[in-house]
Measured scan of single mutants.
Amino acid sequence: EMEYEEITLERGNSGLGFSIAGGTDNPHIGDDPSIFITKIIPGGAAAQDGRLRVNDSILFVNEVDVREVTHSAAVEALKEAGSIVRLYVMRRKP
């Protein structure tokens, strides 16, 4: 069973403070093209906020749908998102 969360982060000097993997051209798990959080960087915006978790998958960055995009398109969406970034994420319920 999945749960969904909308997380708004303010981009810090060091960016959003997380790493991603995945994409249609580089699936992270099997042939699932989802964009997954692979690392939360200590002291970064995501770590300070505390809600984003490793293995969360990002569905939307602001209004941009990143469910079926290449890795570089997801990176671009995050880069272009401005200083306030709304992430709509999905994760397995614990």
Rank of each mutant, 00 (worst) to 15 (best):
M90L: 02
S14L: 08
F36Q: 08
A73H: 12
I40A: 02
L9A: 03
A74F: 13
T8C: 11
A73K: 09
G82A: 11
A77F: 13
T38F: 15
V89M: 04
G82F: 02
E10S: 09
T24C: 06
A73R: 10
G44W: 12
T70E: 09
H71L: 04
A47R: 04
I37G: 00
I58A: 02
K79F: 01
E6K: 06
V64C: 13
H28R: 06
V69Y: 15
I58N: 00
I41E: 08
R53N: 03
P42G: 12
G82W: 03
L59I: 07
S14Q: 13
D31K: 05
A47T: 09
L52M: 15
G12A: 09
S14Y: 08
A47F: 08
S72R: 13
V69R: 07
I84C: 11
R92G: 14
I41C: 11
E68S: 09
A81V: 09
Q48C: 12
G44S: 13
R67G: 14
G82K: 03
R92T: 03
P94K: 01
A45V: 07
E3R: 03
P27L: 05
V66F: 08
V89C: 03
R86W: 02
G44R: 09
A77T: 02
G12D: 04
K79R: 01
N55T: 15
D49C: 11
I7Y: 15
E5K: 14
F18C: 05
E63A: 09
R51L: 08
A46M: 04
L59R: 15
G43V: 06
D31N: 07
A81D: 14
A46E: 01
R86P: 05
M90T: 14
R53T: 05
K79E: 01
Q48P: 13
R67T: 15
G17C: 03
T70Y: 14
V89Q: 01
D65L: 03
D32T: 13
H28D: 08
P94I: 03
A46H: 01
N13R: 13
I41Q: 09
A21P: 00
M90F: 04
A21S: 07
S83K: 04
T38S: 13
I35N: 04
V54P: 06
V66Y: 03
A77D: 12
S57A: 13
K93S: 13
